[in-house]
Every structure is written in structure tokens, then in C-alpha cells.
Amino acid sequence: MAKKKDEGSRVRDALRITGELPDPGSAPVGPGKKPKALAKLGTAGERLSALQEALYAEGVGGGGRNVLLVLQGMDTSGKGGTVSHVLGLVNPMGVRYSGFKAPTAAERRHHYLWRIRKQLPVPGQIGVFDRSHYEDILVPRVSGLLSAEERRRRYSEINAFEKELTDGGTTIVKVFLHISPEEQLKRLKARLETPEKHWKYNPGDLEARSHWPAYQKAYADIFEKTSTGYAPWHVVPADHKWYRNWAVAELLIETLAELDPKFPQPDYDVDAELAKLKGVGVPA
């Protein structure tokens, strides 16, 4: 288990994957109890919203930067919940969400990155990938449809793709939501026992669960081969939803704070426009 760091530590540094993953139920950095995490998430929402507004305004004003949040994890790890609780804190006009399921027949006729490129954020946006191009290594590998040589080629292609994005002004935040098999079982059961959650359940989730060790090995290889200086991987323990939400929010806040987006300067004389308003009355 990773040693817990002081709350003042940078979350990105604390959660960056460099070796053994922390316990899925741990809190390696930041609040260790639910009440404190929920209180901090409220404050984090204010900071995240302000930074996102500045990034969006910068993009409207001609800036070329954006952020891409990549969420990966086993079923029930909380990718959708993270989007709802964290990105729900900001103006939806500045967010571009894309969820990637199994490719359609039309998508399979193209290179696997073709559908990914179509969903990239534009300047000023925070893009969110609920699953991503990494599914095109994970699923075929576990299914036995991808040779070692083909995996190596895809690792290289993905690294080159992400380097292209970062060179073009995108900051990539890759997050692995780390859930335990015990917690996953509880969540799958809750989906079946709660009528309002039946829509979330997929019988195929049990098939994926039966290959748990293979998926963990596949993820370990992905982290080793595709965690780069320009697009590193981070791990967020996800057994506790309250910790997961706080951690992802802080990862985004630190990323945006480092970008330090600026509101564009007006291309008009502010004082002159204010003077005009003084003589403007109510329309008849």
C-alpha cells in the first residue's frame, strides 16, 4: 500500500503511477474520511468552475489549448459517476463528453483511432473520454485477438498519437479508476437489487469479471508502455466514491492551475462602451 502523503502534496505527483498500485480502498493523498472529502469537493467545485470558465473564454478568444481527461477502469469503477459528480461542477458548454463502447461495423472499417479523433475537444474545452483508445488494446488482448507484435505496434501508435495531441495544445490527464473485485461484486449486486439501477447492469460484465487477472495484467502493461512524460498515467483508488470524486477533481484543478488560462482582452474600448450605456434608455 502506498504511504499516505501530507494533504499539501501535489495530487498529480502523489497519484502518478510509478510502480505498485495503492490499495483500492485507500486514500494515498488528501482527505481520508467521507465528511472531509465532501466538504473539500464543494470548495474544489468553485475552483474548478472558475478555471474552466477561464479556459473556455481563452478558447473563444482565439487560444489553442484544451484538456483531455481519459477515464479507464473495470466495470463499476465509476467512470460515469466521476463525469456526473466532477464535470457536473462546471459549465457544460465547456465540456465535450464521449463514451466509447464496442466499435460499430462502420467504425471497424477504419483505423481504431479514427473514431477517437472525431471526438477530440476543441480549444477551450475539457474533453472527457469514458473509456478510450486503450480499449482497443485491452479487450482484443484479453479476448486473444491481439498478438504481442500487434500490441507493441498499438502502444507505439498511441504514444505517437498522444504526442501529436500534446504538441498541438492538448493537456492529457489519464486516470485509472482502481476498484477491488470485492467492491465490484457489491456494486453489481446493488444494480440487480435496485430497480432504478437495472439499466446500469450488463450481463456481459460477469464475463469481463471472470477475466479479472488478465485485465489487471493488460492494464499493467499499458501503464508501463504508455505512461510518458507528456501523458503520464495516474491511479485513483475507487472503492470509495467520495474519495474518487475528490481526487479526480483535484487532478483537473492542478492541471488547469498550471495552464493558468487567461481571459482574453477585449478588442473594444471598455470606457467608451460604458459611456454609451449611460445614454441608453429602456426600449419603448
Rank of each mutant, 00 (worst) to 15 (best):
E182P: 02
A218S: 12
D267I: 02
L113D: 13
E250F: 01
A247V: 01
N91C: 06
E53F: 05
L68F: 11
W233I: 03
R191L: 07
V139D: 04
E53V: 05
A208G: 12
K40R: 15
P123S: 08
V67L: 15
N202A: 13
A148H: 10
V270R: 13
G32I: 00
I126Q: 04
E107C: 10
K276R: 15
A220H: 13
D221F: 04
A27C: 14
K200H: 12
Y219S: 05
E224N: 07
G144Y: 11
T104P: 05
G94T: 13
F263G: 08
G99Y: 01
S147Y: 08
T228D: 00
G204P: 05
F161Y: 03
P195M: 03
F176W: 14
V11M: 14
V270Y: 08
G99D: 02
L55K: 07
L146N: 07
G8A: 09
P261A: 05
S180D: 05
V29P: 00
Q265P: 01
W199N: 09
G124L: 08
S143K: 13
P213I: 05
L38V: 13
R209K: 14
L48N: 00
P35E: 13
L188H: 03
E207Y: 14
A39V: 06
I137S: 05
P266H: 06
K186I: 00
A231V: 09
L89S: 08
P35Y: 04
R115V: 13
K4E: 01
S143N: 09
V90G: 02
L69W: 00
Q265E: 15
R115N: 12
L51D: 13
D205G: 08
D267G: 10
T82L: 12
Q265L: 13
L89M: 15
S84P: 00
E250R: 14
H240E: 07
H240D: 07
W212K: 11
E150Y: 04
F100H: 11
P213T: 03
K33Q: 11
V142K: 08
P92S: 04
R131M: 08
L120F: 07
Y268S: 07
A238D: 02
Q216G: 08
T170H: 09
A257L: 06
L256H: 01
G94R: 08
A44G: 15
